[in-house]
């Protein structure tokens, strides 16, 4: 395992702040309400799509700093699994198990379709490159 340069940690912190603020702003603009949480759904699906698309961008392949700023940083901060869990829990608590299941499975299924579509646009080699950039090897 390679040690993490402070430059990469700073890039993730900065990108994470940007992504989280973006999600917060969208949530303020179009609140989820008490039915199907469409805003969080759209955030998670679009974020998963964008992350799968990153390897297709040449500047991202050239710069590890940019790759972690955008991947684990912006898109990791933009998307959320904790809010999705809490929304699912809240729907179950309200006695709406069908809606909770539709939301949790719908988010997962749609996000996976989005990732598959984005994957078609970036070659396998490019995807391997970004996996290394993600800092998890």
């Amino acid at each position: 395992m390679t040690p993490l340069p402070p430059r990469l940690i700073g890039a993730v912190a900065l990108g994470g702040a940007v992504g989280v603020v973006l999600r917060y702003a969208l949530g303020e603009l179009v609140p989820d309400g008490d039915g199907f949480p469409w805003t969080t759904f759209a955030i998670n699906v679009s974020g998963a799509f964008a992350l799968a698309l990153l390897p297709a961008l040449a500047p991202v392949r050239r710069s590890r700093t940019l790759a972690v700023a955008l991947g684990p940083g912006v898109l990791g901060g933009y998307t959320t699994l904790s809010a999705t869990s809490e929304q699912g829990r809240s729907l179950l608590d309200q006695g709406r198990p069908a809606l909770a299941a539709a939301y949790l499975l719908g988010t997962l299924g749609t996000a996976l379709v989005a990732v598959a579509i984005a994957g078609h646009w970036s070659t396998a080699a490019e995807q391997r490159a970004i996996a290394v950039e993600d800092g998890d090897r």
Partner: peptide
């Protein structure tokens, strides 16, 4: 929200 991620999970 920052700690968890749906994009990397997917």
């Amino acid at each position: 929200g920052g700690l968890t991620t749906y994009s990397a999970f997917a």
